[in-house]
């Protein structure tokens, strides 16, 4: 994939933004990109010290979501009665407005357990369960029949055929989880009364009308999420090269 068209589009967008503010748009409260960039530079130590706890919570939250989500999806796939019982509930749970869910969750888990982690995990977990389940269910039934004609046991067919075939779906779920984990982290920090993290820094910067810094925080959090997304895509290409290999092309 060549990044040049994207970079060019980004430059055009930033240029238009800069021009818009310079020409008097933004009513004095929309900082131009260069002001955001300079805020990132001058506030770098503040941003960094608040970035670390947020990033840590995001990574741990995704990890918890992945472990729990995968375990649940696999159990539901292998146990049809469990799937019948839980699948409608898992789907219904996606309609819950997570923005509203964060404060009561923080209230509930506020003691002992790291509350942000729970909120991030809860928010990220559904995409992993649903995409993994769907990917497992989408495995070619003829492939299962074939393996059964070889006297394969249920668990071994799962291990050697179904699970590897579903791995691209698992990665898709993880990518969605990464994308929403930043939302979860900020929501949790703003609901939990913590005094560190980018969500917290955003709150106080906003209340002090340090507008360029709020945009700097948004930028840092977005860049981190993008970096995670790219890292996950790279891991996928590395572990599942077959899912990317064009058919019929013989590698040199």
């Amino acid at each position: 994939m060549r990044p040049w068209p994207t970079l060019l589009a980004l430059l055009v967008l930033l240029g238009a933004w800069e021009l818009y503010v310079d020409l008097g748009g933004g009513r004095g409260v929309l900082p131009p990109p260069h002001a955001v960039a300079s805020s990132i530079w001058t506030d770098r130590s503040l941003l960094w010290s608040n970035f670390r706890p947020t990033a840590e919570a995001m990574l741990l939250g995704i990890l918890v979501a992945a472990v729990v989500g995968l375990a649940l999806a696999i159990s539901m796939h292998l146990l049809p009665w469990l799937r019948r019982a839980l699948y409608p509930l898992v789907l219904a749970s996606q309609t819950v407005p997570i923005v509203l869910l964060a404060p009561p969750l923080v209230l509930w888990f506020g003691f002992g357990l790291k509350p942000e982690l729970v909120v991030i995990a809860v928010i990220s977990f559904f995409s992993i369960v649903v995409t993994t389940l769907n990917a497992l269910a989408a495995v070619d039934p003829d492939l299962i029949k074939l393996s059964r004609s070889f006297d394969g046991s249920r668990l071994r067919i799962f291990r050697h055929v179904e699970l590897p075939a579903a791995m691209p779906g698992v990665f898709t779920g993880a990518k969605i989880a990464v994308a929403v984990s930043g939302i979860g982290a900020v929501l949790a920090e703003q609901s939990s009364g913590t005094t560190k993290g980018l969500g917290y820094l955003f709150e106080i910067s906003y209340s002090q009308l340090l507008i360029p810094r709020t945009w700097a925080i948004i930028t840092v959090l977005s860049l981190f999420t993008i970096a995670l997304f790219i890292a996950l895509s790279a891991a996928e290409r590395l572990t599942l090269p077959w899912a990317y290999q064009p058919r019929g092309e013989i590698p040199a």
Binding site: L146, S147, S153, R156, V161, P164, A165, L240, W242
Partner: peptide, 19 residues
Amino acid sequence: LLLPWLGTLDNAGLALRVR
């Protein structure tokens, strides 16, 4: 219905693996 993630040798041995 060969498994796209396996090489020829492992695809050929699938019946053994699932047993």
